[in-house]
Design a protein around this nucleic acid. Structure first.
Length: 905
DNA sequence: GCACGTTCCTA
DNA sequence: GTAGGAACGTGCA
């Protein structure tokens, strides 16, 4: 048997939750540093209410700004309230917006408080026999409780009816006003009776039932408290009035006029995206997927027209449209992620949002439909793709450019790249692959490659994927790219100097990197194999010795077995633990343990050889491409937080240099016959940038005079003459200089130098004493990071620091170190990128046959140069690198020439 | 077969 | 103390 019941009206005291959410929840912020903790708290509370009271009207009431009638009654009302913190104030409008998008009536009535509006509506409902639930965190509301009115605190999940009030306060709901008048309220500045707290108030009310009687019998109350009561007699009526929630506010609507919730999903999704409420975005999206297909999403075209081009006539029509379009999105589907091996399987285009086409060319699964001939179709596309005046948009077009090159097409007119737009806009907010971007900026889920191709070893390549799956996937790629661009481009233009970073640095670098990747680097497989052989022999010796010393056979590469032998069997001291708490066997620990036992030394040598062998000498020959005989790395332009490039397959940016054995690997990087390698690197570029950014006179002078900067620092810090600096002092100064760039602490420096913390602190203090501009710069950059939530390079590239205001001090300090390091590391990255643009342009126009740039390693460029033009190329290279930025210090570039990378460096 | 932790190479 | 990529062993599926 079910009982039909009208659902209660839910009246929400928004303001009371606002403050509680603000104080109770961690200070969340978006990547743009908009605080969102209170928004999240209030909205999640509302969502819970909607769930708990299905079918109910939910009315949200907030205090209006400004004074209320209570201030007119009592000038000092709420005078003790501190002003609202800025990071709370900035969350009010967003909450209002979201409440409206949720389709909940939002009431903000001037000159009264939210309580009064709620009181009035509750009163009206009661009169009409409608049950009311008041959602509030404010105890004063207890005065409104009746047979029809209950309170619910959605944050603590507690409900309170009539009995609940008696239980909690010890008085009935209609005694609450008198109770509040007696007790008073410090924060609201309601006077009350001095020294009268809950206990006394309840005692008096039990005895006399109401305030009037208590006041009338004030003479009978003994003791000090009686005196206080009599003192308060004059103000008690006022206290009572202030504590009384109005139930007769004049409203120009009635309960029936307020609508049931009607959520605007599109608007809501927009807002959730703006404030980065990921889980809610996902929820809305999945709801949308399940809902009727005619509900359009934000930015999403109402209908999507994706076609598959299988006839020449259709291709002709698209070619014509593409030729006319001011900009079109373009994407290739291929057989491999490795650009050197990838063959084109199809291409897709989009000109208008929601409309895209896939041109399949090489699907070859059993029963694949007839497709246009790949070579012929590509030949028709070639003029368009190679025309620098026909603007193309893509997602990571460097890959497409490389792949097209495999088919003899040299993509030009790379006008926009959504991956780079997203990266420049915010390098850390999201990964920059298309699926992530669509989720982040369009609030849409895309068809993933895994969903059509499977994963792992059994993953299909694109040519094996059926057209009815491949078509929508590929067309969507082009469509999403176009729509992402429409969202990202305006954001770039709006934000600082990001537009110029994108347009003048990262985007034009795409073809430069593409060419470097395709050129590749020559390595001598025979040299590396010979080296591998020698390493293997030495490692075998070491392994045998180690087994003898340990008294058992074990795997030298297993940290776990090592831990057992070192710490359990041999009982060596545990010097350091890994993050997970296991005793570490890392290099510095082994160095230390080498004093105690012979085994660590054997192991250290074995490890370093094993590293070289497995990572370099064994692996590099395998990466030599069969077609070119060279090694082709991938440079990643949207990976690092700071603006640097990264390199993979192989990582050319961590080829060994420090040890003799390591340098032998560099020796395997060689120049072709008739050519030499020229390697040019910026000297101390980050310290120079620090000098420039800080403007410290001492540092500027030292660089201007061409001094050995570590020596100069040592002279200052240790107070000795320049020519009296010892090598030990110079070494310490060098560590200090590096530490500065990394945002060091005394603790870190102490560990680096192996001195006491106090000593390290003394060095730091003396440094800042001698270079006060640097100290000021460090302080400023920290402050800026805290205020803005981001730091900038000299050229305006931004790095957002979402954790800079984290409660967790460790996270916050880590963010501060990043804040100090990023402008220097990032400016250096900007500078070498600018240099690469200049150098490539110069070489392509003036020396296309004799010199080419093939590698970049953060502060170093490596060129292959024909032997007859070494001098002019080296000079021109140094000149252009030095001129890539004009700082207040010279940019010194050192260049070397050699038959291999080791010689040239 | 894959994710994770540890270690180690670079600027 | 900053920023990366890669190999290996281990434990789980």
């Amino acid at each position: 048997m079910s009982q039909q019941q009208t659902p209660p009206v839910v009246l929400v005291d928004g303001s009371s939750y606002l403050f509680r959410a603000y104080h109770a929840l961690p200070p969340l912020t978006t990547s743009k540093n908009q605080p969102t903790g209170a928004i999240k708290g209030v909205i999640s509370m509302l969502r819970r209410l909607e769930q708990d009271f299905p079918g109910s009207k939910v009315v949200v009431v907030f205090d209006a700004k400004g004074k209320t009638f209570r201030h007119a009654m009592f000038a000092e009302y709420k005078a003790n309230r501190p002003p609202m913190p800025e990071d709370l104030a900035s969350q009010i409008q967003p909450i209002h917006d979201i409440v409206r998008a949720m389709g909940l009536p939002l009431l903000i009535i001037p000159e009264v408080e939210a309580d009064d509006v709620i009181g009035t509506l509750a009163h009206e409902a009661t009169r009409k026999g409608i049950d009311v639930v008041i959602s509030t965190g404010d105890k004063d509301m207890a005065q409104l409780v009746s047979d029809h009115v209950t309170l619910i605190n959605t944050m603590t999940e507690t409900r309170m009816d009539r009995d609940g009030v008696v239980e909690k306060f010890g008085v009935t709901p209609d005694q609450i006003i008198d109770y509040l008048a007696l007790v008073g309220d410090k924060v609201d500045n309601i006077p009350g009776v001095t020294k009268c707290g809950p206990k006394t108030a309840v005692k008096w009310l039990e005895e006399h039932h109401n305030l009037d009687t208590i006041m009338a019998r004030a003479d009978e109350v003994k003791g000090k408290i009686g005196e206080y009561l009599r003192e308060a007699l004059d103000t008690l009526p006022l206290s009572r009035e202030l504590a009384t929630i109005k139930t007769d506010v004049e409203l120009d609507f009635s309960l029936e006029d307020l609508p049931l919730p009607h959520q605007d999903d599109t608007r809501l999704l927009d807002l959730f995206r703006e404030y980065e409420f990921r889980s809610w975005i996902n929820e809305l999206e999945s709801k949308d997927d399940a809902a009727t297909p005619d509900a359009p999403q934000a930015d999403a075209p109402a209908d999507k027209r994706y076609s598959i081009i299988t006839s020449q006539a259709e291709l002709d029509r698209w070619l014509e449209r593409l030729a006319k379009a001011p900009l079109f999105a373009f994407d290739t589907e291929t057989t491999s992620l490795r650009y050197m091996d990838a063959e084109i399987v199809g291409v897709s285009f989009a000109i208008e949002p929601g409309e895209a086409a896939y041109l399949p060319l090489a699907h070859d699964y059993m029963g694949a439909p007839d497709q246009l001939d790949r070579d012929q179709a590509l030949a028709q596309l070639k003029p368009l793709l190679e025309d620098p005046d026909k603007a193309k948009l893509g997602q990571n077009l460097k890959y497409d450019k490389n792949v097209l090159a495999n088919h003899g097409i040299h993509l030009e007119g790379i006008a926009e790249d959504t991956m780079l737009e997203s990266y420049v806009l915010n390098s850390v907010a999201t990964r920059h692959d298309m699926d992530s971007l669509a989720r982040e900026y369009l609030g849409e889920s895309t068809i993933t490659f895994e969903s059509i191709a499977g994963k792992g070893a059994k993953q299909l390549t694109f040519n094996q994927i059926e057209l009815d799956k491949a078509g929508p996937y590929a067309a969507e790629d082009a469509d999403i790219t176009l729509r992402l661009h429409q969202v990202l481009r305006p954001k770039l233009a709006e934000t600082g100097r990001l537009k110029s970073v994108y347009e003048e640095i990262d985007l034009p670098l795409v073809p430069v990197l593409s060419r470097m990747e395709q050129r590749g680097a020559m390595v001598s497989a025979s040299t590396l194999r010979q080296h591998s052989q020698e390493l293997a022999e030495r490692m075998a010796e070491l392994e045998q010795e180690a087994h003898e010393v340990a008294g058992e056979k074990f795997n030298l590469g297993s940290t776990k077995q090592l831990q057992a032998i070192f710490y359990d069997k041999l009982g060596l001291p545990v010097i350091k633990k890994t993050p997970k708490g296991a005793p570490s066997t890392a290099e510095p620990v082994l160095q230390e343990l080498a004093h105690e036992h012979e085994l660590p030394r054997l192991l250290l040598e074995h490890r370093s050889l094993s590293k070289l062998k497995s990572t370099y000498t064994d692996t590099l020959p395998e990466l030599i491409h069969h077609r070119t005989g060279r090694i082709h790395t991938s440079y990643h332009q949207a990976v690092t937080a700071t603006g640097r490039l990264s390199s993979s397959e192989p990582n050319l940016q961590n080829i060994p240099i420090r040890t003799e054995q390591g340098r032998r690997i560099r020796q395997a990087f060689i120049a072709p016959a008739g050519y030499k390698l020229v390697a040019a690197d910026y000297s101390q570029i980050e310290l120079r940038i620090m000098a420039h950014l800080s403007g410290d006179p001492g540092l500027l002078t030292a660089f201007a005079n061409g001094e050995d900067i570590h020596k100069a620092t040592a002279a200052e810090v240790f107070g000795v003459a320049l020519d009296a600096v010892t090598s030990d002092q110079r070494r310490s100064a060098k560590a200090i200089n590096f530490g500065l760039i990394y945002g060091m602490s005394a603790f870190g420096l102490a560990r680096q130098l192996d001195v006491a913390r106090g000593v390290a602190q003394e060095y730091i203090d003396r440094y800042f004493d001698r270079y006060p501009g640097v100290l000021k710069y460090m302080d400023n950059i920290r402050k800026q990071a805290h205020d803005d939530g981001f730091v900038e390079t000299l050229f305006g590239r931004r790095l957002y620091l979402p954790e800079i205001n984290a409660r967790n001090k460790q996270l916050q300090q880590a963010a501060e170190r990043t804040a100090i390091n990023a402008p220097m590391q990032g400016t250096a990255a900007d500078i070498i990128k600018r240099a690469m643009l200049e150098v490539e342009n110069w070489l392509l126009t003036e020396h296309p046959e004799t010199a080419r740039m093939i590698m970049q390693v953060h502060d170093e460029l490596i060129l292959e140069v024909r032997e007859d033009v070494l001098e002019p190329i080296r000079d021109g290279l140094v000149k252009r690198m030095s001129a890539a930025a004009s700082l207040d210090v010279p940019l010194l570039v050192e260049a070397g020439v050699g038959n291999n990378w080791d010689e040239a460096h």
